[in-house]
């Protein structure tokens, strides 16, 4: 057995719940979430950290779960699309995506929503170019991005309006 195949006990928090599992050292976080925990909302597109479909939050930071080993998450708090949806934290953003048809096949959407979620609390209101820059690590092959930028912008404006 190689070191990569050696199993390790890990304890972490996933979507607010404590999780203890034995995982192989080589198991990346995306596979751990999907295969071991059944959280299939995290999608795998490239497995080399480019497409962003597997984006999750690790201790509040947007993270490529395909480039993160499960064992690296010992003691950390992971939030997936399932968790962020259940909490209602970005329900307005998700509704904006729906209303604006900012998704077609939906495969990039969980990662896109999580990436966009950290923009919603920005101090300064980002313009469209800044929104585009921010989501550029998340590929979408269907929409051409325009509708996604619209949905994020609509949500930001509505939150700014509500905060006034």
């Amino acid at each position: 057995m190689t070191a990569a195949q050696m199993e390790h006990e890990i304890t972490l928090t996933v979507n607010g719940f404590a999780v203890s599992e034995r995982v192989e050292a080589r198991r990346h976080l995306a596979d751990f979430l999907r295969e071991d925990l059944g959280l299939t909302g995290t999608h795998i597109g490239c497995e080399h950290g480019v497409c962003g479909a597997c984006t999750v939050l690790v201790d509040g930071e947007i993270t490529r779960s395909c480039l993160t080993l499960a064992v690296q998450c010992e003691g950390k708090s992971v939030t997936t699309i399932e968790g962020i949806s259940d909490s209602g934290a970005v329900a307005d953003l998700q509704e904006a995506f729906r209303a604006r048809n900012a998704l077609q096949c939906g495969y990039c959407t969980p990662g896109m929503v999580i990436t966009a979620s950290v923009l919603l609390d920005a101090e300064e209101m980002p313009d469209r170019e800044e929104i585009r820059d921010h989501i550029s690590g998340n590929y979408c092959r269907c929409t051409g991005y325009h509708a996604i930028v619209d949905a994020v912008e609509t949500t930001l404006k509505a939150r700014a309006e509500a905060g006034r």
Binding site: T40, I81, S85, Q94, F97, T109, P110
Partner: peptide, 9 residues
């Protein structure tokens, strides 16, 4: 779309 935005596809 709602279920797809929530990772329920």
């Amino acid at each position: 779309l709602k279920r797809l935005t929530e990772g329920r596809g």
